[in-house]
Simulated scan of single mutants.
Amino acid sequence: MPANSKYLNPAFWPRFSKITAAILGGYFVSVTFHLALASWFSRADVLITMAFSGFILWVALMVIAFLAKSGWKIWGIYILLTLLFYLFIYLGQTYNTAK
């Protein structure tokens, strides 16, 4: 049974933005989230845990990207989350090296 054509998006750019947001954006958010945790908590424990939880988070972010209506909106959200986690990384490294 073929898919209903009203749910298919034939345009290239919306499809491209969702695919790249799912793969690249989800990866950036997943990695920066775990690095932010590593800058505040035990680095070795977080990085070992990242081998499993990072993949699970990345897949969840991929699913969210494909469920979103707009690929550009999800790109914006993923970029904002990545920048927020970069801020936490910077603050964690600054605070923890000052001790």
Rank of each mutant, 00 (worst) to 15 (best):
S70N: 05
I77K: 07
R43D: 10
W58H: 15
S39W: 03
I77C: 04
S53K: 14
V63S: 10
F88G: 06
S39V: 05
I89W: 00
I79T: 06
W40P: 06
L61A: 07
M62S: 14
I56E: 08
T32C: 05
G71E: 06
G54R: 03
L80N: 12
F85Q: 07
L37T: 01
L57H: 11
L47T: 02
A44L: 11
A51S: 13
H34D: 08
I56L: 13
W75S: 04
W72L: 10
S30G: 09
L84E: 06
T49Y: 14
A36F: 05
F28M: 05
T49G: 15
I74V: 13
L83D: 01
A51D: 10
S70I: 03
A65F: 06
V59D: 02
T49W: 15
A38G: 07
I79W: 03
G26Q: 01
M62P: 00
G76E: 07
S42F: 13
V63A: 13
Y78E: 03
L47D: 05
A51V: 15
S30L: 06
G71Y: 03
R43A: 14
K73D: 05
A51M: 14
I56K: 09
Y27V: 12
V46A: 04
L81A: 03
L91D: 03
A44M: 09
F66E: 02
W75Y: 05
F88S: 06
L83Y: 01
G54D: 08
F85V: 03
F66A: 04
A38H: 03
I77Q: 05
I74L: 06
A68I: 08
M50V: 13
I77V: 02
W40C: 01
A68K: 09
W40K: 08
S70Q: 01
A65P: 01
K69Q: 08
F52V: 15
A36E: 01
A44H: 11
M62Q: 14
D45S: 14
V31N: 09
H34M: 06
T49N: 14
R43Y: 15
L35N: 11
Y78D: 07
K69L: 07
G71L: 07
S70W: 03
L35T: 11
G26H: 03
K73Q: 10
G26K: 00
V29R: 00
V29I: 09
M50P: 00
V29S: 00
I64Q: 09
F66D: 00
Y27G: 13
K73G: 07
L87K: 14
V29H: 04
I56Y: 12
